[in-house]
Nucleic acid binder design. Structure first.
Length: 464
RNA sequence: GUCCCCAUCGUCUAGAGGCCUAGGACACCUGGUUUUCAUCCAGGCAACAGGGGUUCGACUCCCCUUGGGGACACCA
C-alpha cells in the first residue's frame, strides 16, 4: 500500500514552529516511502478560520519547501461527504440527536468539576434499551452525538509512543455535528482520513485523547483505521509551553529574523528525532534517513543557540548568488543600496564565515555601500594624534600601490616597521576609518574589496 | 479532580540487558591558529529523578513515588 500522510492545520493563525515540525515529519515520511503528502485545511470553525491564515500557512510551508502532492482540500467544501456519513451513523444507531442546551451542558460540567470528577456528557439523550427518552424540546436545535461503545477498551499501537489503551467508559459521546448541522472536527477528521486514504496519521501529542474516539467512529463507519504517530510537543527555551504570548512565533518570523530555511529544517528535523550522532544534514539526506522509530516520545525544548550554529553552517555553505539576492534585500531594509562595485559576492565571501545570521551579515557589510558612522569612542581610542601622521604617509603611498592584498599588506608592514609599532596599532585605526568599527576580516583584504578610491576617501576624511 | 503520555549532561540527543569508565552536538571553560573580532582546530566541565523488584548482570524490563506535559468545548 502506498504511504499517504497529511498535514491538517486549522487556519486560525500562522504556521508556528510546532506545526512546521509536524508538517516536516509528515512530509518527510511520505517522501521517504515514495508516497503522497496531502494538505488539508480544517476550516469547520467558521468563526475563527480566515483566508489570511490559510495564506500564512501556505507561505510558511512554501518557505520551508514542504510541497504537497494533493490539496489543499477545504473541509467546508466537503460537507456533502460528512452529511452522507452522518446519516449512515444515525441510521445505524451509532449516532443520535441530543437536545441538551449549551446552558444545560455548561451547568453539568461546572457541577462535575466542582465534584472533582471528569467532566463528561451524562448521556441524557442517549438511546438505550428500555430507556424512555425525555420529551423533545421544540425550541432546541439538536446536536448529533456519536454513540460511543460503553464497554471494553480501544487500543492502538502508536508509532511513537507504543501501545495505548483507553477504556470506553472514559470516553463520552462526542458531538459530531452542531445544532446548525455543520460537522465538528472529530467527525471530519475521521471521514477525511478515511476517504483520503491516509495510511499514517502523524500529528501532535494533543490529539492522543481524540484518537480512541476516532477509532471508534472509524469502526462504526466500517472504515480502515490508519496508523497513528503522535509527536510530542516543542517547549519554549524556558521549558514552558509555547503559546501566542510566549515564543510561538510564525516560521516566517525566522525568515525575518535572519534564518535560512535550510537551517530551520535541519534544526527541526533533529528536534525529537535522531540518526545516531548525525547533526548536520540537508533535506534530501533527512528524507532518506527519516523514520518513525527514532522519534523521542518526550517533549523537547527549543534551543536558539543550536539553531544559530546551524544557521552559521548553512550561511557558510550557501550558494553565493542565492545569498547575495537575500542579503541585497536585507540591505535595502537597512536603507542601503547595493552597487555594482564592490561586487557583493566578493564582500560576502569575505564576511559569510563570521556570520550566524543573515540580518547580522547584512548589517556587517553595509559599510561597503554606505559610509559608516564610526563610534566616537573607537575613533578616540584608535585614531590618535600619534598615529595620524603615519596614516597620512600611508594614504600617500597607497595612491600608487597596485591594488592587491599582498601589495597593501606590504604598505602596512612597512608603516609598522618604520615607526616601530605593533601591527594592530596600524590595522585598528584603518578599520575604524574604513569600516567604522575595530573588528573586520584581514584589513588588507577588506581594502582590496572596498576599492582604492573608497579607501583613500574614507582615510582622507579622518586626516583633514 | 479524572484519564493519558513522558523522564540520560544546562539544552538537543545516542543507548533496544553485558559493547557504558554512559557516546555525539549546542552552550560554557582552557589552549592553539590569526592582524582585531569571528571562524577554525585541540582539550575540558557536565547526566542515567528517587525507591523497590526481575536477572549472574540493569541507563536499558516491571512496580511505586516524585516531577513535567497533555486532554477533558456545539475549538481544532
Amino acid at each position: 500500500m502506498t504511504v499517504r500522510t497529511r498535514f491538517a492545520p486549522s487556519p486560525t493563525g500562522f504556521l508556528h514552529i510546532g506545526g512546521a515540525r509536524t508538517a516536516l515529519f509528515s512530509w518527510a515520511y511520505a517522501k521517504k516511502h515514495k508516497g503522497q503528502f496531502v494538505l488539508r485545511i480544517e476550516d469547520t470553525d467558521v468563526a475563527r478560520s480566515t483566508p489570511e491564515a490559510v495564506q500564512a500557512i501556505m507561505d510558511g510551508m512554501a518557505w520551508l519547501g514542504l510541497d504537497h502532492d494533493e490539496g489543499p482540500f477545504y473541509q467546508m467544501q466537503r460537507m456533502k461527504n460528512y452529511q452522507q456519513h452522518l446519516e449512515a451513523l444515525l441510521a445505524s444507531g451509532d449516532a443520535y440527536y441530543c437536545y441538551s442546551s449549551k446552558a444545560e451542558l455548561d451547568a453539568l460540567r461546572e457541577q462535575q468539576v466542582k465534584d472533582g470528577v471528569k467532566p463528561k456528557y451524562d448521556g441524557k439523550w442517549r438511546p438505550e434499551a428500555g430507556k424512555v427518552l425525555p420529551e423533545t424540546p421544540a425550541d432546541i436545535k439538536p446536536v448529533i452525538r456519536f454513540n460511543n461503545p460503553k464497554d471494553g477498551t480501544v487500543a492502538w499501537d502508536d508509532l511513537v509512543k507504543g501501545r495505548i489503551e483507553i477504556s470506553n467508559n472514559e470516553l463520552d459521546d462526542v458531538i459530531i455535528a452542531r445544532g446548525d448541522g455543520t460537522p465538528t472536527y472529530n467527525f471530519c477528521v475521521v471521514v477525511d482520513d478515511w476517504e483520503m486514504g491516509i495510511t499514517q496519521v502523524i500529528r501532535g501529542d494533543d490529539h492522543v485523547n481524540n484518537t480512541p474516539r476516532q477509532i471508534n467512529m472509524l469502526n462504526a463507519l466500517g472504515a480502515t483505521v490508519p496508523q497513528y504517530a503522535h509527536l510530542s510537543m516543542i517547549l519554549g527555551s524556558d521549558g514552558q509551553k509555547l503559546s501566542k504570548r510566549h515564543g510561538a512565533v510564525s516560521v516566517m518570523q525566522y525568515h525575518e529574523d535572519g534564518y535560512l530555511p535550510e537551517a530551520v529544517l535541519n534544526y527541526l528535523g533533529r528536534l525529537g528525532w535522531s540518526h545516531g550522532d548525525d547533526e548536520v544534514f540537508d533535506i534530501q539526506q533527512f528524507c532518506e534517513w527519516f523514520d518513525l522509530d527514532h522519534i523521542t516520545p518526550s517533549a523537547a525544548q527549543f534551543n536558539t543557540e543550536k539553531l544559530n550554529w546551524l544557521n552559521a553552517h548553512y550561511i557558510k555553505n550557501a550558494d553565493l548568488n542565492d545569498l547575495s539576492v537575500d542579503i541585497t534585500k536585507r540591505l535595502v531594509g537597512l536603507g542601503v543600496t547595493v552597487q555594482a562595485e564592490p561586487p557583493i559576492n566578493n564582500v560576502l565571501e569575505l564576511y559569510r564565515e563570521r556570520a550566524n545570521n543573515l540580518n547580522q551579515l547584512a548589517a556587517d557589510i553595509a559599510y561597503f555601500y554606505s559610509v559608516p558612522e564610526a563610534n566616537a569612542n573607537e575613533v578616540e581610542k584608535h585614531i590618535t594624534a600619534e598615529i595620524k601622521p603615519v596614516m597620512a604617509v600611508m594614504a600617500e603611498t597607497l595612491k600608487s600601490t597596485s591594488w592587491t592584498a599582498e601589495a597593501i599588506h606590504e604598505v602596512i608592514a612597512a608603516a609598522v616597521k618604520e615607526n616601530a609599532l605593533k601591527f594592530p596599532k596600524v590595522a585598528m585605526p584603518l578599520r575604524v576609518m574604513l569600516a567604522g568599527i575595530a573588528q573586520s576580516p584581514s584589513i588588507d583584504q577588506v581594502m582590496v574589496v572596498l576599492g582604492k578610491e573608497t579607501v583613500l576617501n574614507r582615510m582622507a576624511s579622518y586626516l583633514k
